[in-house]
Design a protein around this nucleic acid. Structure first.
Lengths: 132, 132
DNA sequence: CGTCAGATTTACGTTAACGTCATCTTTGGT
DNA sequence: ACCAAAGATGACGTTAACGTAAATCTGACG
């Protein structure tokens, strides 16, 4: 078993996306499944890429941004110039993600505060009701 | 100085958004500036809400989701039922944000790996060039 | 060989979140 | 009183990321 190509249906089920989305990602050059006749066959590499695509989306990156990031994980044997550019781009994204994480942590802390506040208020209301 | 209302322009500059966006948020009931005649006046409370709106956007929440979250920060003197619902919703969002953070941390770690890999490759290329 | 489910291609539709005019009003300043 | 700038109100346009429908194709099976 050297490889294990997936059909489009299997991909859909495994990643919970529609066939339309997969074809769309292909049209946008984020995926390059091979063809067996006219049908698409998704390799392990395609599956890895799709995973990254979906994760990128969850972080609010656009498909175009994701496409650029994907090239990073495909860094084969490019020239030093290309590699440097890719790395620079990646560092930029890394920075974004880090500030995003910091802000997210702050937001989480604040939201927890608010919830605690609401919880205590509910407790007081409960006491009143119990006392009556 | 009990209050310090902002004009729409001041809001735009302070938060780097367009007037169109502010009116749009108002149409979607995320902001409720008062009116002095026909003109909008944004209170401190509006500014706080806008800050949360923009932050929510950065985390990929839709305006509708943000609207619901905003009500959390407006928990005044509602009934216990309403308050419980709001709190439940908030806990759900909190969970989402926490998993998002965890996934983000993992993505950051992986991206750092890749970058390090690229960096080392560049170093090797540099050595070769130097040796030539 | 017929057909019937599953794929593909093509093309138009949809939603969110504004952008971009065009066209009034309002208003502070001279 | 008058003018230009700022603000308001429609109304239509735009982009991203698919959804949906229609027509065609293709391959395994009885």
């Amino acid at each position: 078993m050297t490889e294990t190509p997936y059909t489009i249906r299997q991909m859909c089920e495994e990643f919970e996306v529609t066939a339309r989305a997969l074809r769309f990602y292909e049209a946008k050059e984020l995926l390059f499944p091979e063809r067996q006749g006219t049908k698409r066959l998704y390799s392990k590499r395609d599956r890895a890429r799709l995973k990254l695509i979906l994760r990128g989306k969850r972080f609010g990156f656009s498909l175009e941004e994701i496409r650029q990031l994907l090239d990073l994980y495909t860094m084969g044997d490019q020239g030093a110039t290309q590699l440097t550019m890719t790395r620079t781009l990646a560092l930029k994204h890394l920075d974004e993600m880090k500030s995003q994480r910091d802000e997210l942590n702050q937001a989480i802390a604040e939201l927890e505060q608010e919830i605690e506040w609401g919880t205590k208020k509910l407790e007081r209301l409960g006491e009143r009701e119990t006392a009556a």
